[in-house]
Nucleic acid binder design. Sequence first.
DNA 1: ACGCCCGTCTGATCCATGTCAGGCTGGCTT
DNA 2: AAGCCAGCCTGACATGGATCAGACGGGCGT
Lengths: 254, 254
Amino acid sequence: MSHIDTQFHGVRITESQGRPAQQHLPAACSSCSLHELCLSGGLDEIDLEAIDRIVAQRRRIAKGEALFSVGDAFRSIYAVRFGLFKTEGLMTDGREQVTGFQMAGELLGLDGISDDRHVCKAVALEDSEVCVIPFAEMESLGRAVPALQRNLHRVMSREMVQDRNLLVLLGSAQAAERLAAFLLNLSERHAQRGYAASEFILRMTRDEIGSYLGLTPETVSRTFTKLQKDGLIEVAQKHIRIPDLPALRNFIGC
Amino acid sequence: MSHIDTQFHGVRITESQGRPAQQHLPAACSSCSLHELCLSGGLDEIDLEAIDRIVAQRRRIAKGEALFSVGDAFRSIYAVRFGLFKTEGLMTDGREQVTGFQMAGELLGLDGISDDRHVCKAVALEDSEVCVIPFAEMESLGRAVPALQRNLHRVMSREMVQDRNLLVLLGSAQAAERLAAFLLNLSERHAQRGYAASEFILRMTRDEIGSYLGLTPETVSRTFTKLQKDGLIEVAQKHIRIPDLPALRNFIGC
DNA sequence: ACGCCCGTCTGATCCATGTCAGGCTGGCTT
DNA sequence: AAGCCAGCCTGACATGGATCAGACGGGCGT
């Protein structure tokens, strides 16, 4: 069990308190436990070493701090090593809305490519760490390593597909379906990372969930209660248990 | 004025009727009027010729026909030459929802990269033509031509950003704001292509608009009427006029 | 030119979710 | 240990949009 796994299980990172959020630590895809989930999946030893040279630093972000904000110059993309982030977009009238939650092994910052400026804000929901991947170098390494290029494209495409799914959800599903779909999505992603699929802790508030799902926090709360009454989930504050995953999946298809 | 421009202005393509939808015609980015809007923007002569060799064929899609459907094997992406498409995603319960409209110079099919299978369906809303861009060859040319690689990444990123914007819209805006934002978006894209920003024809039905915006067709209809009463737009069937663009933009920020 | 039908508009009603308000709990600070 | 406050839950009420129903009009095919 590696250093990273331990931290991902919830150990607080106290040594960064009082220091600036940005730190420069060595990163290494070749020895990263998330490697198969991340950009470096499926690459051979030699290519991994090349990536290691590019992904030269990590950065720690304390809970509540922003990794980047709207308008920031785009230079790098980020891979979450441990912790959890939310990304939020800006409405025309200034309100913010959560557009996604990123957990270990997922990328942040791809939105900045299109015009060299970030158009959303990424905030850590708990003490977190990311690998900093300078994008220009990533592109040039992609030119040398087709498999890496392929991975990048796959990740970008996957992100588009996920956004589309959420779109469809917001466009045509009811509150209970939205929430159920959200929980199932979290469940799957936990499972991918080797954690329990049917029991987990929500790291985000009801406000953030509501913002993400296009609902008010009150409705989120009520809907949790309703799903519990229907026996589909068990809720205790931030603790969620899904006693019957197939049943919940089935509920979505109504 | 080229052949393409003439067709884009609305001349019906009659010669394809009764034939299979797939046709093999020469394509040429180097002489395409959409070149600056599309993937080949900013490239030099030599690189353009390289692209021309890859983007070797076009395909005509009659109104109502699908360019690709959910589950189809992914091999190519497509650039719209003229015409208009809608993409629709599949709900868990089988219902379909429109997730986007693509006009000349925009790309289709990027959703298929992530697992080599299309996860949405692209349907022509009028007789249309696309350039077929084999993706494997596109990737390999991207390795040789950094500017092309950059363009591809930019386009993908832009698509992600647009999806996010729509997400925010669906998550927190009222019917009138959604519709206004939709019209402004169309207006901008028309302007980019050299057409009037304040007057245009809607090529999609109220149903399709409603599906896209997460509203019923009845609400779309009513909301058009409401916006007209408020003097923000003039509607006559599919004909839209926006007498005061800044006023409509201002309306969004409420 | 005629008639059919799809797409659109409008009205009446209902329901899901937003809004406003109050009270509870658990975790953090002092 | 006490107190405070953010986050959460629940209730009562308001409302925007969905739903159901019907009428109109224009485009298309015969």
